[in-house]
Design a protein around this nucleic acid. Structure first.
Length: 413
DNA sequence: CCTCCACCGGAACGAGGGGCGC
DNA sequence: GCGCCCCTCGTTCCGGTGGAGG
């Protein structure tokens, strides 16, 4: 992309510009960007452990299954992808063919979708003559085709299941971990890397799957401020030289470290700071930009979370927001939320759902970290109540929610 | 001590919608 | 086009639980 500034014969309109005064390679600040190995910071030990578990695969043996825990932005996916790629290359030098697949269970969130995307990723129609329709066939059929593909193409398959707690049921784990013993597979071996950001996930696992997944269990700790600083410095060439003032990176690191040690957040703050500087026609990124970027990052994150939610789910969250604004107590009993919810639905003239359903919606919002959840009492007895609360300011929540078309008439009032 | 009663949460079920293979 | 398959949203029903109140 040529960027000679306001070159007239390029038809450049000064209102729009291709060249940025701040960024050179902005894509380096995307979390999806996989840095090459010398840029992976502070995860040496984790890389070694994962590699160790995969080691048997190099010579064509069974890799150990593992489950990786850690909060968002602690490098779980990064390390998993990185090590599997290296394992694949190392195996090739030994004449072993290794297939690798990565699925995000938040997107492929049912058994059928997950196995379907797995099969598609590892397939090569020219080689196997197996067709994988994206949908429409029975789940068993997907499995059957999947096993055929594996045996036809690979000695070992390493499968990364990211955000595995978002998966509806464990059946696919069961199938994958038992494929060899059940005689579904001939020669191919399977290794599973399961990734979850909720440690409580293991409680939900069925015993039969648990034993095979927990062969290896790793916990990724949050990054400390020093490591976050290094991560950002490694990607500093996303910016033009000398654009960052000296306190920008340390301050971003300190902000991100004070929350969860989340590298994604750190990079978001840094990127937003650059964008804010750009908008304000500043030549350099300064401390004040970082401070503004921090709150912007929070609001954006919450808006993104709510974006995909159906209207009914937003209504339940709105009910919590209204009650929080009206009371002192921030933790609201599920019954009160339902009453408020009913008020809202009649006021807006939308369909009113049953209490049972609303309760499920609330729990789902809590699972997605849109709401907080707290159980009071013991068992399921009378007197024990489930309470929900906001994780943001009521006003932020209201604004984010009222983008839904249904709420237009509310703004008219 | 016993019996309600209110609440959580699992499960079964169905409607409506969409896709594939033959 | 028909029969089969899957997904999402929702409802109804009910078992377990343990504090309140006789």
């Amino acid at each position: 992309m040529p960027d000679d500034g306001n070159d007239a014969n390029g038809g450049t309109d000064p209102l729009f510009r291709v060249d940025s005064p701040i960024f050179t390679r902005k894509e380096l600040l995307e979390i999806e960007h996989i840095p090459n190995e010398e840029r992976i910071v502070g995860r040496d030990e984790q890389i070694k452990k994962v590699a160790n578990a995969l080691n048997p695969a190099i010579a064509g043996g069974s890799p150990r299954n593992m489950i990786v825990y850690g909060k968002t932005g602690t490098g779980k996916s990064l390390v998993a992808k990185h090590v599997t790629q290296r394992a694949k290359r190392a195996a090739e030098n030994h004449g072993t063919t290794v297939g690798t697949a990565y699925i995000d269970c938040a997107q492929s969130n049912t058994e059928t979708r997950a196995i379907s995307t797995l099969a598609t990723q590892l397939n090569d129609v020219g080689e196997t003559e197996v067709k994988i329709p994206p949908t429409g066939i029975a789940t068993d059929d997907y499995y059957a085709r999947f096993w055929r593909i594996l045996d036809a193409r690979f000695d070992v398959a390493i499968i990364i299941l990211d955000e595995i707690d978002k998966l509806g049921n464990d059946e696919i784990l069961m199938q994958l971990s038992r494929a060899g013993e059940a005689g579904k597979l001939g020669s191919c071996k399977i290794g599973i890397i399961a990734i979850s950001n909720k440690i409580s996930y293991q409680d939900k696992l069925e015993q039969r799957v648990k034993s095979s997944l927990q062969e290896r269990e790793f916990i990724f700790p949050p990054y400390d401020a020093e490591q976050l600083r290094l991560i950002m410095e490694n990607r500093e060439d996303a910016f033009k030289p000398d654009v960052l003032t000296s306190d920008v990176i340390p301050l971003s690191a300190a902000f991100a470290a004070s929350e969860h040690g989340d590298a994604r957040k750190a990079l978001d703050i840094l990127r937003h700071a650059g964008e804010i500087a750009e908008e304000r026609d500043d030549e350099r990124v300064r401390e004040e930009h970082v401070r503004d970027a921090r709150s912007l990052a929070d609001v954006n994150r919450f808006r993104d979370l709510l974006q995909g939610q159906p209207t009914q789910a937003k209504l339940t969250v709105l009910a919590v927001a209204e009650l929080t604004a009206a009371r002192r107590e921030s933790k609201i009993e599920s019954n009160d939320i339902y009453d408020k919810y009913c008020e809202l639905t009649t006021a807006l003239d939308v369909n009113q759902l049953s209490q049972r359903r609303v309760y499920d919606l609330l729990r789902e919002q809590a699972f997605l970290d849109i709401l907080g959840q707290e159980f009071e009492g013991r068992g399921r007895a009378r007197g024990s109540v489930m309470k929900f609360y906001l994780l943001e300011e009521p006003e932020t929540v209201r604004q984010a929610i009222q983008r839904d078309a249904v709420f237009d008439q509310m703004n008219g009032e």
